[in-house]
Design a protein around this nucleic acid. Structure first.
Lengths: 248, 248
DNA sequence: CGACGTATTGACTCGGCTCAAAACCTGTGG
DNA sequence: CCACAGGTTTTGAGCCGAGTCAATACGTCG
């Protein structure tokens, strides 16, 4: 199938462009591309569960995948929701080959499987990759610091405001008076879990945000009459102001 | 001074034993030891602030140091509290040389300054170190995942229980019926911030924990009549049961 | 003993959760 | 084009956990 081949090529080019492989020789790169396999996943399909023996690391090509932890009594905490270009499961490499969170598609998505052994070997043999990987993990750590701060210091509405601001292109900071329209990348209920609240709370908190900052809400479409008000409202309870670097 | 020399020697040996330098040649190691300097810090003394240009990475030799973020309107979130053998500030290496959190001693402590450039060079030249570092950062990330989960899914008492369990030696899991006495490593009010709650809430929540699990509290000394009850109470709202590996 | 910092307690408020019902979408088939 | 079924989102009422502010108790060090 020609379609198939197109997909494979796109995967490869996305893989090659991934920051983790920056500066790596073509030979090594081709080796990795050869063992990587695209995989279509349907909505709700689980990629792996926490404590699973890790076979693969996944690179998201299209769609959205949530990373979550599930408690013994059945509650779920959404740690992250990721999309195109992001990698999941690589934590297992340094965790005795065991995943430390689960992952599932939240809509039909395309991911690429990379055998964990292949990546592991690469890291050990190629110091560039280890350093690139360090960059990546450190950035994720910074994001998580921000996450922890958010959960302890911001209220529900402020967290939503913060979430919206992170959806904007960084360039929006240069024209803080301009109107912007964006729309939510995935279900409100998922955003709610992502932000550590219930969907009812999300709904009400979004209402409050609306009246406090003058944003408009119609379904999943948000209009922002300049980021100034939103920034003032959300970033006051945060240690870093819009545009929060590294936080997209 | 002989005292001085003793300190220096202890620093060196602690540095050499640090997981980040595992498997590194003596020559390289000595080079690093040579540029590292011990520093005494008094209670409350700030090591660095968020957004500071990072000059040094710090290795804690003795005492306790908190890592925190401060919001624009003056609130503080304690991200972590660390002690002997742990490193802080290394995140700056991958953040354009800027710290992404502040650090301050919470009691008189001894730390070792390591020039950030020295560590940076080491990482780039020595792939072992990059890999060791990856291990370290990945572990920190796992801890943070746990932190986020805690904040969203556990109530105040459960978080305290979880905190207590993490203070225990892993071996306690083998004799779950035995009594254990431990005492809190630092002020209750700091533990409270560390767990994302106010000290009044901590006090009340500890009371609740006491009546729910039968632990005893006298000042900073806690007695646990077997970890079973505590585990059942705290770990039920958590994705991983005592003993939580990597979480100490 | 007095003074200071830390911890606890009490009374009250408020944000976010729960449970239940209604409203809104979106896609499907008649 | 409409009706209907399914899911998602919103709204309502009531509750409960954690925060706030203020007063009191405790501990330790001078």
């Amino acid at each position: 199938m020609d379609d198939q081949r197109l997909v494979v090529n796109e995967c490869k080019s996305l893989l090659k462009d991934h920051p983790i492989l920056e500066g790596v020789s073509d030979a090594v790169l081709d080796g990795l591309v050869k063992v990587a396999r695209p995989q279509e996943v349907s909505k709700g399909q689980v990629l792996f569960l926490q404590e699973d023996e890790a076979e693969h690391v996944f690179l998201v090509i299209n769609g959205w995948v949530k990373v979550f932890r599930e408690t013994l009594d059945g509650e779920e905490a959404v740690i992250d929701v990721i999309t195109r270009g992001h990698m999941i499961g690589e934590g297992a490499i340094f965790n005795g080959g065991q995943h430390n969170a689960g992952a599932a598609a939240v809509e039909p998505s395309l991911v690429m499987q990379i055998p964990i052994r292949a990546l592991e070997d690469l890291i050990n043999q190629n110091s560039d990759i280890a350093v690139n990987m360090l960059h990546m993990v450190s950035r994720q750590r910074r994001r998580q610091n921000h996450e922890i701060e958010s959960l302890t210091l911001q209220n529900a509405s402020q967290r939503i405001g913060c979430f919206l601001l992170r959806l904007l292109p960084v360039s929006a900071a240069n024209t803080p008076e301009d109107d912007i329209t964006l729309h939510l990348p995935y279900d409100k209920s998922l955003i709610a879990s992502r932000l550590g609240m219930k969907s009812e709370t999300f709904s009400r908190a979004l209402g409050r945000l609306k009246s406090e900052t003058g944003i408009g809400v119609r379904g999943g479409t948000i209009t922002i009459p300049g980021v100034v008000a939103l920034t003032r409202y959300s970033c006051s309870a945060c240690s870093t102001e819009f545009p929060c670097k590294d936080m997209q």
